[in-house]
Design a protein around this nucleic acid. Structure first.
Lengths: 110, 110
DNA sequence: TTGTTTCATTGCAATAATACGATAAATATA
DNA sequence: TATATTTATCGTATTATTGCAATGAAACAA
């Protein structure tokens, strides 16, 4: 994309953007929803469930794992993925500081 | 990025991803925070405040406007941008249906 | 009218993201 | 050991995103 100038923004602004980017693709939304609903902990199940190539799902899982939102446990030849509760809570708190702003000056402008 | 296969996901999953993408760049986070804090309603103020080129800020504003999150009112030679409260609320409700999941099976797996 | 200010658009270069086939790596099974 | 199963990684084609200089367009001021 051309380099984002992260250095001119605050740590918090960059961190919010990074989490939001993790959620900016419907495949990753679907993966996380599946993990919440359980049963489909395993990579292969997600591939069947979602309908993208195995390599693609694996790549999306890697991104979520890199951010810490999910963790994987090897079980034989398959891998079980789960949400990391602590990171998820941290993320939610962070995003809410941004989303829960009050809208002022609704009358004085626009 | 290669084409995202939006057709294999639900309407809701795609809509969540679209809003998240709007927030996936620190410049757009900063713009919205500025609009919340008011004073810097005007495009030129945002350019000074944030420190990206005028063309770049204008482009980010366009994306947010296209999504409906902000609206602009021409005032002479300048343009005043504000949050669209209704769209913002809709977005928050939508994102919370995703973010507010309960984490089950924390014991049975991973 | 002429110049000034402010914002949007265009065009381009650089880089990131998406998707998938092919293949490697690791474990289980016969 | 040989084969099958499952996941990760590599390579690559395609498309999207970021950023900015240059230029337009619109409103204002002199």
């Amino acid at each position: 994309m051309g380099v984002s100038k992260t250095e001119i923004f605050t740590k918090q602004q960059n961190e919010i953007a990074v989490f939001m980017k993790a959620f900016s693709h419907p495949a990753r939304i679907s993966i996380l929803q599946n993990l919440f609903e359980k049963d489909t902990c395993v990579c292969g199940d997600l591939v069947k469930e979602i309908g993208l190539a195995q390599a693609t799902i694996s790549q999306h899982l890697k991104e979520l794992k890199l951010l810490g939102l999910i963790k994987g446990k090897v079980e034989g030849t398959s891998v079980c993925y789960c949400i990391d509760e602590a990171v998820w809570k941290h993320m939610k708190t962070l995003l809410n500081t941004f989303l829960d702003h009050d809208i002022k000056n609704q009358d004085t402008c626009c």
